[in-house]
């Protein structure tokens, strides 16, 4: 539990710009008395992040080059409001977000009749982190990655380059990945009594990518406008959110009592409670210059329980 809280707190502190400290005034006793139980942190955030290279080393490398996170159209990733609270008991609960997940969306006028959400339980001592916009509108974002490629052992970290990009690296898996999207409410609850955190997120994404090793390129859009389950749509706008809810915890004795190797190990458990939306793959181009067609998946819903560890 301590580990999870440290992650969240470190991330929150790291993400906070040097907030304005002007005009601080001392509180007198009377005003102090009114503050009790109303603590919590709100961070209004604007950022533009670029990373030249991210390298994961096994024996060889998996590298991500020219990564950037910003708003759409090259603008800053802004209009974000983060609230961070340690919840009290039910008689003394004062969260920075009035409502979580689908309840918040419904209050903002969105149709969430098809949302497949597990209500997040907030109990005394839980850390609750909410991402909202300052304006009330969804937050626009862009994620771009120049290349994702493999590279041999002995390559120089910081100077990895794919063969296709003139370097000595290996196969390029993905190039020219660009994702524009919108963030709806994202709520993270870190449980005080167990090694677990729950992430509940509404978002949309569209963009394009090329997979040189497959000779394939395509455009994609993840949304939730079609089918029997429609979630996160609002009349008169194009907003439409896919949904992902993930419970992350620690398994202390994975494979205990089995013949599986490795057994009785600590591992990370990722329980995908719901990943749902509509996925469009359009302008699919395999090899040539003509599209072979489009694929539309409606009401895609995935449930998966994964235990992840090294070997």
């Amino acid at each position: 539990m301590k580990g999870l809280k440290k992650i969240a707190l470190v991330a929150a502190v790291a993400a906070a710009p040097f907030a304005a400290n002007a005009e601080l005034q001392a509180l007198n006793d009377a005003s102090m008395g009114a503050v009790t139980g109303q603590a919590g942190v709100t961070i209004d955030l604007s950022a533009n992040v670029t990373i030249g290279e991210i390298a994961y080393e096994d024996q060889g490398f998996l590298a991500f080059s020219d990564v950037s996170i910003s708003g759409q159209g090259g603008t800053d990733l802004d209009d974000i409001r983060l609230t961070i609270d340690v919840a009290g008991d039910t008689t003394n609960r004062d969260l920075g977000t009035a409502a979580l997940g689908a309840t918040y969306l419904a209050g903002a006028g969105f149709d969430v009749s098809g949302a497949n959400e597990t209500a997040q339980s907030v109990t005394d001592g839980d850390l609750v982190i909410g991402l909202r916009s300052q304006s009330g509108l969804p937050v626009d974002f862009n994620l771009s990655i120049g290349e994702i490629f493999l590279s041999k052992t002995g390559s120089t970290v910081g100077s990895l380059q794919s063969r296709a990009n003139g370097g000595t690296g290996g196969t390029t898996l993905v190039s020219d990945l660009s994702i524009d999207g919108f963030l709806g409410p994202i709520d993270i609850v870190i449980n005080e009594e167990s090694n677990s955190l729950n992430v509940n997120a509404y978002f949309s994404a569209e963009g394009n990518l090329t997979m040189p090793f497959m000779g394939t390129s395509l455009d994609f859009e993840l949304h939730n406008r079609r089918g029997a389950t429609v979630a996160g749509t609002v009349a008169g706008t194009d907003y439409s959110f896919a949904h992902a809810q993930v419970d992350v915890s620690v398994v202390d004795s994975h494979n205990a009592g089995t013949a599986l190797a490795p057994n009785n190990i600590s591992a990370l458990r990722v329980n995908v409670q719901d990943f749902s939306g509509d996925l469009d793959l359009t302008n699919i181009n395999t090899g040539g210059t003509e599209s072979i067609g489009n694929v539309y998946m409606t009401d895609l819903a995935v449930r998966a329980d994964m235990v992840i560890y090294g070997h």
């Binding site: 819903a301 449930r303 994964m306 090294g310």
Partner: peptide, 24 residues
């Protein structure tokens, strides 16, 4: 240290889809 890296995922799950449409 050599050759000790790598990732293992033990998986259990199910996927549903109300409609798959390939359109040309």
């Amino acid at each position: 240290v050599v050759a000790q890296a790598g990732l293992t995922v033990d998986y259990s799950g199910q996927t549903t889809l109300s409609q798959f449409k390939f359109e040309n």
